[in-house]
Design a binder for these strands. Structure first.
Lengths: 166, 166
DNA sequence: AAAGCTGGTGTTATAGTATAACCATTAATG
DNA sequence: CATTAATGGTTATACTATAACACCAGCTTT
């Protein structure tokens, strides 16, 4: 992972970020013989507009503008598909959705959520997940899914007088 | 923590569990000069009826039976109070609430959620939280709150043909 | 080509979760 | 007792998510 790929980094190139995500999504769906339809690709593109998670209802106006119907089931279906393919994650504590930077292997994310600028970064959570596994196993609990969402302040928002993204 | 205090344990004595939770709540509120009113105590008692989290709307009928009004704001106010006092936790992935076994010190819980019997156990999560802190600090992120919710199967529900609590 | 199947989408309605806003009442304080 | 703060009642509404059924396009099977 390069420094630029981290959303906090001043040199983060988001247009590269989003185009790469879309290209990878197209590749993955092709390889898996899944259909990345126009609606699904649009929803994915909208979610990748930023590293701030979007709610399902935030997506509806843009779908309407693009000429699709804009009833909730449409966007939830697209989101279900994208989640199943690992292309987006749902953030339970926000009821919102964010693009996944590594959709090629199925995994639960571990997220850092900035309370000021709302930017979300997905951690490589190997050691945390191992720790959870260890503690769960000590109680005989079989882990199937992990929801790990950390709220706080990102490096950029810890300096007072800094511009906010809200 | 004794073995019996773990909800999975065959000798878990829940009537002891709930009475202790209520007694501790009364003590804590008294010490903090906070008012554990009838509604608040009833909501706490209802939540402690089991180790399965309850949704806010699950509580309304019981409030009505007890002669209180049963509109949503009533129960959400009680839940807000109980959360502020550390007496209950909200499980974001379930939109539900569970009693906290150690309300005397403020903390975020780390929960094991059984997908079969829906029993939730709160871990002593020191080492997990440390691990999270370490990873967050490496990115310059200042942690304020942690949401850690693990879904899977509890020991009792991993044996097929076993009775379910649903 | 006709019939039948599948997956994706359109559409309407409704379920489920949470809060805003305003008013009445009760409890704590001086 | 008067004042103030905290609590609760009430109505309405916002926000999040899904059920259920209809339609259609593309495909397979005959």
């Amino acid at each position: 992972m390069s420094h630029q790929s981290i959303a906090y980094h001043p040199e983060h190139n988001h247009s590269h970020c989003i185009e790469q995500a879309l290209a990878q999504a197209r590749e993955l769906c092709k390889a898996r013989k899944q259909r990345l339809t126009a609606i699904r690709e649009l929803v994915l593109r909208l979610i990748w507009q930023s590293h701030q998670p979007l709610g399902a209802y935030d997506l509806l106006p843009a779908l309407a503008e693009a000429g699709f119907n804009s009833a909730p089931p449409t966007v939830y279906r697209a989101l279900d598909f994208l989640q199943t393919q690992g292309l987006v994650h749902r953030i339970a504590s926000l009821n919102a959705f964010v693009g996944c930077p590594s959709p090629e292997h199925a995994h639960d994310g571990c997220f850092l959520i900035c309370e000021n600028c709302r930017t979300v970064v997905e951690l490589d959570a190997g050691s945390i997940i191992n720790q959870v596994q260890t503690e769960a196993q000590a109680l005989g609990f079989a882990v199937r899914q992990q929801t790990i969402e950390i709220s706080g302040l990102c490096p950029n928002c810890q300096n007072p007088g800094q511009s906010s993204d809200s």
